[in-house]
Design a protein around this nucleic acid. Structure first.
Length: 269
DNA sequence: AGCTCATGGCGAG
DNA sequence: TCGCCCTGAGCTG
């Protein structure tokens, strides 16, 4: 589930459910027991998100730094919370809501300076308003690395994952193997602006939809389709199936240990 | 029961 | 570039 839109949505959800009041904090699984003991009963007074990193602020005690990785999940429920089943790393319990964290790559108590250091190593996030895509362009325009790899590098842009990477390149007809330095400034500005729109919509809907209205099956006179991972997409995990626009089989290849998906006909620029 | 795969990322070499 | 960490779903037997 977790690309940047998921994390920003979770940040808003935590703010709404828990902020400003004391929360019970526990680690039923035990791996965060020491941190939980320090935080239990304190007020959750701030929430922040940058890229795929989520921060829960507990005043002078510090921040809980959460990264879901590939497998992590955060789920909410209404109090009273049931006995935790399985591997709950962190449980927050408020007056009427609880949240369970499972399988994160990171769940750690950090200080304010440690949090700042994390922000500093992350590239601009299309979902934050503190920065535009300029800093990313400075790296991309000087790099011989492929644009597909650059988009996944969190030091270049933060929050983009394998789905948004594939989809935004498709939407702009960009060959994923083009070196960053071959992109024009105008192309990058268009990609950035599109990421801002797509990811904001992702936060709103809590899923990734990238297909333009005019390309939806209804608009193209075809029966509705169902993509098997929630959202409506052009190429992500659609390899060996026909491109929605031109009918060419969508291709897949491994790139830096991740699966890349693209349409060789539509993406030649 | 065991295998494979997944919307991530890190450190060793 | 590789191995490894985190977990659960969806297969196969």
């Amino acid at each position: 589930m977790p690309e940047g839109h998921t994390i920003h949505r979770l940040a808003a959800d935590h703010r709404e459910r828990f902020a400003g009041r004391p929360v019970r904090v526990s680690s039923p699984q035990g791996k965060f027991a020491a941190g939980a003991a320090l935080l239990d009963g304190q007020v959750l007074d701030d929430v922040d998100a940058h890229g795929k990193h989520l921060f829960l602020g507990f005043g002078a005690t510090g921040w809980v730094h959460i990264h879901l990785g590939l497998f992590g999940k955060l789920g909410f429920g209404t109090a009273p919370a049931p006995p935790p089943s399985g591997t709950v790393r962190l449980r927050l319990l408020g007056e009427d809501q609880y949240a369970d964290l499972r399988g994160p790559t990171t769940c750690a108590l950090v200080t304010e300076p440690e949090k700042l250091a994390i922000h500093e190593r992350l590239g601009p996030d299309p979902l934050r308003t503190d920065e535009d895509g300029t800093r990313a362009w400075q790296r991309i325009s000087r790099s011989r690395i492929t644009v597909a790899a650059l988009l996944m590098d969190q030091k270049v842009v933060s929050g983009v994952g394998n789905v948004y990477r594939a989809e935004v390149l498709f939407r702009h007809g960009i060959d994923p193997y083009r070196p960053g330095k071959d992109l024009t400034r105008a192309e990058w500005d268009t990609i950035w602006a599109d990421l801002v729109l797509l990811m904001r919509e992702g936060v709103r809907n809590n899923r990734i939809d990238t297909v333009r209205p005019e390309h939806l099956p209804e608009a193209m006179g075809r029966p509705p389709r169902v993509d098997d991972h929630g959202g409506e997409v052009y190429v992500y995990r659609r390899d060996r199936r026909p491109c929605h626009i031109c009918g060419t089989d969508v291709r897949t290849a491994e790139l830096a240990a991740r699966n890349l998906f693209w349409c060789p006909t539509c993406q030649q620029r």
